[in-house]
Simulated assay, not measured.
Amino acid sequence: MDFSLSAQQRELQDSLEKSLAAISPISRVRRHADERGVFADDVWQGLADLGVCGLLVGEEFGGLGLGLLDAALVAEMLGRHVVPAPFAGAIVAAPLAVAAAGSDAQRHDLLPRIAAGTLRIGVALSEPLAGARANAGVRCRDGRLEGRALFAIDCADAGTLLVADDSNGLHLVDRAAAGLVVTPLDTVDTTRSTARLEFDGVPSAPLPGATAATLQRLGDALRVTLAADLLGASWKMIEQAVDYAKVREQFGRPIGSFQSVKHLCADMVAEIEPARALVWYAAHALDEIRPDASLAATHAKAYLSEGARFVARAATEVHGGIGITDALGLHYWFKRIAWDYQAFGAPERLREHAAALQGLA
């Protein structure tokens, strides 16, 4: 069996590699980090012009009609370039939720705007997917939302929010709705938008077809997307470490010629490369609705979280003291990996979930 990317998928990644180098160079990432909280409109527009916003939107609604494997390939490139733009929530989870659980009117209203990049939807699904923290969780009472969500993503400049309640319901909420307070959160990763949402009798528009299975699929899609992002970020760190080892000299020779540095670089590659097929298969399984799709998604995110964290540490060590300075910029990938590690379930929780899926918990 030949399990590899198609020519079109390889072309997609090659095209994105070239385009993102222009849309989001490290100088643009640095400026975004320094601006703190200012939405990168130019980066978002660049993604929209490439058609990225409509990746998972059906062609009948103006999108590309592609699958989660294609979205994972895009996520890998975004992680590779630490692109400071919404993706996992706004471009993956939101259109999937509307397409799967929205009414006909909601689909015809929202999906074309998502595909065009004119509508950004923030996503608050963390509590039902990763476990509620203290005093967190959202309840729906008589069509109004109460409570709070502590790890909502892609909320910067989003006019609409997708919120999960404690009964597997999904709701669309207007950002300007009375009773809603959106508080941006400072996290380790300045390329991502994270917020706390507080609800006090907030009116919402429920997605009528939402079920526990819908929420599970959204969680699987988010985990595969973040696993792919981890893959891209960690491979970029490996390449940077190898390139640095070739030119940095110590005792009159490149440090890459020393056995300890060689082994460290080889260990990074050995840790990450097997995960590529794991991500591909997990995304493929979700597209094909295979019975092991949730298990594959869970393992992909758990494995990449730990593998990428090892790479982040080892690549920084190869660089020595300069690896922790702002001048190099290596920390943007380091911090992105740290954010991905925790989002929608750290490895320990994901393995508990995998055990439960197999009836072992």
Rank of each mutant, 00 (worst) to 15 (best):
G67N: 12
L68N: 11
L68Y: 03
L69C: 06
L69E: 13
A71M: 03
V74Y: 06
G79M: 09
R80K: 12
H81K: 11
V83S: 03
P84L: 14
P84F: 10
P86I: 06
P86Q: 01
G89I: 01
I91A: 13
V92T: 10
A93L: 14
P95H: 07
V98K: 00
A99R: 10
A100T: 14
G102T: 09
G102N: 08
D104P: 09
Q106L: 14
R113T: 03
R113S: 09
I114P: 00
A115V: 08
A115R: 05
A116Y: 00
G117M: 01
G117Y: 00
T118E: 04
R120A: 13
G122S: 00
A124Q: 01
E127A: 09
G131F: 06
R133L: 15
A134V: 14
A134Y: 12
N135M: 02
G137C: 01
G137V: 01
V138Y: 05
V138G: 03
V138P: 11
C140H: 08
R141N: 06
R141F: 05
D142P: 01
L145H: 04
G147E: 00
L150D: 14
F151W: 15
F151K: 12
F151H: 13
C155F: 09
C155S: 13
A158M: 02
L162K: 04
D165F: 05
D165S: 06
D166V: 01
S167Y: 11
V173M: 07
D174V: 10
D174A: 15
A177S: 00
V181M: 14
V182S: 08
L185Q: 15
T187L: 11
T190L: 01
T191H: 04
R192L: 09
R192A: 12
T194V: 15
T194A: 08
A195N: 06
R196N: 08
R196P: 01
E198R: 15
F199A: 01
D200A: 11
P203L: 02
S204I: 03
A205K: 07
A205M: 12
A205V: 13
L207I: 08
